[in-house]
Nucleic acid binder design. Structure first.
Lengths: 236, 236
DNA sequence: ACCTGAACACCGTTCAAGT
DNA sequence: ACCTGAACACCGTTCAAGT
């Protein structure tokens, strides 16, 4: 069968061919903006990069939140889900560290990840991989289901807090000053701990916290399920 | 000495006397707006409530972030720092639960608390109280300093995620649907855990996570301080 | 000197009007 | 039918001009 004739593309003023719009192209362009310099990826800036107006984006996404969720899931495709060295504990730490690094490069998305949980295939694959590692460690599946939430929340919140901060920058200068100025009379324990509150570098503290969560999980079974069923209960 | 004569206040159109502006009045008004219905406390809405224009607020606060930090610290004055029943573990859980409840009533502030750490007296008092309880539990102070961050981050992030959600509302409907639809072939562990991922009610899950963090802390000493000093080091 | 109206440079979202 | 220019209803912040 002869291919149907297509209209020849109208050459718009000889500009370098602009990509046709689609969910994929929009998300890819948004991630490129987000990863490089751009302070905040707004619908208007994104539309500008795509050489159109903001209204056009509403053909593909219901609102800004849905776009953010799509960006987030696309980003999660870069997480290393199956490291090949170490026991289950070490591999769990590596997967979570990879997740954190990926978010780190996209400050805006890291913040969004705390509020709008993604539901795309890459997020599901991440949860599945974490559950698998916890099962390998012998954790009952009901416990593992809750622990995954804890691990991801720790990683996400840490990325969101620190993302986009200049590496050399003094973070929380006001808090540091306040702690340094805290009178030992009013705040005895704070004054005693002042030297340690801000110690350690980010990755070391994060890795320690993952191991702490794993140890805690092994030592802390879920409460008896008596109250559990509720409306949240089973799927279906 | 005779008191200096004051100008009589000009009665502005017989309106009920409007409070003179000050940091305290502004913060109190903002918290009232935040706690009651008001979707989002913006500088313009706040200025409206104070019967002035947004520019006036800049006389008292450098920017919106500084106002938020002041609101947050004022709010933390309501946290019950010293419960009178239970051992140190139970009291620690009670303080953290109180902190979470206070944030819950102010969705916007809960979100802000994740990014701009407050540095006011009420925040310092909270950290001091948590350090005291951890010391009572026998945790070395260097460990306790890091653990406090973990406990507060868990509480803050949970409040931020859930704050403002209608109690009856189905949260994360997209994620729940995606999990329910997940094929056991592609996501075997996710499919197996589907029934448990969303189980339990909020407070029970939160309380369990606090105990998990405490158990983890007791079982997970900080890494050797070899790398610690850095630029973050001691407070002199 | 202290305060603020009005302007500036942005937002997300909607919808009537184009092709 | 699909797309979008222009308008709408907002933002935080600045600054010249008032008292």
């Amino acid at each position: 069968v002869a291919p149907r004739a297509r209209r020849a593309p109208i050459s718009r003023r000889d500009r370098p061919a602009k990509d046709a719009l689609s969910r994929e192209v929009i998300v890819a362009t948004a991630l490129a903006l987000s990863g490089e310099g751009t302070e905040r990826v707004t619908l208007r800036r994104l539309a500008g990069a795509l050489e159109t107006g903001p209204a056009s984006l509403y053909v593909y996404f219901r609102d800004a939140e849905e776009l953010q969720a799509a960006m987030l899931d696309a980003l999660l495709g870069a997480v290393r889900l199956r490291p090949d060295t170490g026991d289950w504990r070490e591999r769990l730490g590596q997967v979570l560290a990879s997740y954190t690094e990926v978010l780190f490069a996209h400050p805006g998305l890291a913040r969004a990840a705390l509020f709008t949980r993604p539901s795309g295939p890459h997020y599901l694959a991440l949860v599945d991989a974490l559950l698998e590692l916890l099962a390998e460690g012998g954790l009952p599946i009901a416990d593992a289901a809750w622990v995954v939430d804890l691990l991801l929340q720790r990683a996400t919140a840490t990325a969101a807090e620190n993302a986009g901060a200049d590496v050399g920058a003094d973070e929380d200068p006001l808090l540091r000053q306040a702690v340094a100025d805290a009178s030992p009379g009013d705040y005895p324990h704070l004054a005693a701990a002042a030297g340690e509150l801000f110690s350690g570098d980010g990755p070391a503290r994060l890795a320690w916290s993952f191991q702490l969560l794993i140890n805690g999980a092994l030592a802390t079974p879920r409460p008896p399920a008596a109250i559990t069923p509720g409306r949240a209960g089973s799927v279906r």
